[in-house]
Computed example of a mutant assay.
Amino acid sequence: MDKLRGGSLGGGGSSSGAPSTAPGHEHHQLEQYQYPKNLIEQYLRASSKIKKFERAGFFKRFAPSVVDVQADFQRLAYSFEESGIQQYAAMCHIGYAKCESYGGAPQRESEAYLRAARSFLAAHNESGRLHLRTRHSGFREGAVHCYHRAADRAVDGCVFKAAILRELKQLQRQLDSTSSFASPTHQIHDLEISAETSGQRGDFRSALQHYDDIVDNVYERRGARMYGELLRRVEVLRLLLLVHLNLPPARQSPAHIKLIEYYYNLAQFESLPCSADDGGSAERPGAFVPEQQQYALAEITCAWVERKMCDLKHLLRDFGAEFGSLSDMERQLLAVMHAELARSY
């Protein structure tokens, strides 16, 4: 019995001739079985770290290191790609892009969003090849969103941005026959280009109309949270255009009046700054505008409503100097408004 017991433990055999499984081998098999699950758990941990960083506010020294979180997302993205789980690879690339946004590197942020778009597209194509009954447009919609984000963060006029738009154009050809994508995705880019063109030639009323159409298109499909940065930029431009055009109340739409009232009340301390993360509607004014920008815009609105034009001139200049992340269109409009006020005040 001792020899049999010893042989069973030492040689890996048994009295019945069936091979036994060593504990280390069982552990290895268990790890293999749980491999995707372990990766997803790591992704969730990395995501929770970046949320902690976002919530840290002014107490950045208590937040996790952005560099470490970024390295986690990069490693996990490659692991998911090797495992063929493309949708999670895409989400890791998005996490990587968010880390780049904190470092003020728009080109690398754009490249990360492009990788995310390609991963979402690969997930969509793979589900089609497998003829999955549960196949839906979510991956394709994610790809379109990431292509738009990549184009938005890329430098205007560069070859890289042109390549992004070519890929997006190829994808949108496939979407033309799908009615659920008729709005807002198809029209947003063209509307923003039209608004910028109108602004450059001084047709600010047309520019305002185009920006209003962008907001309507996004809200129509309840897609506000997918276009947070776009809605931030458009809200700032709409408010500045309303101040610049100085339209009488009869010429303002209900949305214009609501926007002006929100920022004026904020300046009078009759309301608190809102956010898309506070559990309320993402379609309210200020939902995607950072709190500091909201207060600065509130001061601009108050000076305009109360006809304090000298104060308005200085506030416009300070707004452009304080926020380095403003788009070229925002800076151009601020310069036009400041120059016009400087001629009279």
Rank of each mutant, 00 (worst) to 15 (best):
K3T: 01
A18I: 12
L30C: 02
E31M: 11
Y33K: 15
Q34E: 07
L39C: 10
I40H: 15
Q42W: 06
Y43L: 14
Y43N: 05
Y43T: 02
L44H: 12
R45N: 14
S48T: 08
S48P: 01
K51F: 01
R55H: 09
G57V: 08
F62W: 11
P64N: 11
D68K: 15
V69H: 00
L76R: 07
Y78V: 09
Y78I: 04
S79M: 12
F80M: 08
E82A: 14
I85S: 07
A90Q: 06
A97T: 04
C99F: 06
E100R: 04
A117Q: 09
R140G: 07
E141H: 07
H148V: 01
A154D: 00
D156H: 08
C158L: 03
F160E: 13
A163R: 13
S180E: 14
P184M: 07
H186G: 15
G199R: 06
A207E: 13
L208T: 03
D213F: 02
Y219E: 08
G223N: 09
A224T: 09
G228V: 02
L230P: 01
E235H: 05
L237W: 04
R238K: 10
L241C: 06
L242W: 05
V243Y: 00
L245I: 07
L245M: 10
L247W: 03
P248D: 08
A255D: 06
H256W: 02
E270Q: 14
A276P: 00
G279H: 07
S281P: 15
R284D: 05
G286E: 04
Q293D: 05
Y295D: 04
A296F: 06
L297P: 12
L297K: 09
C302D: 13
K308L: 06
L312D: 02
G320R: 09
S327P: 02
M329V: 05
Q332D: 06
L333V: 00
A335S: 15
H338M: 05
A339M: 10
E340Y: 06
R343S: 13
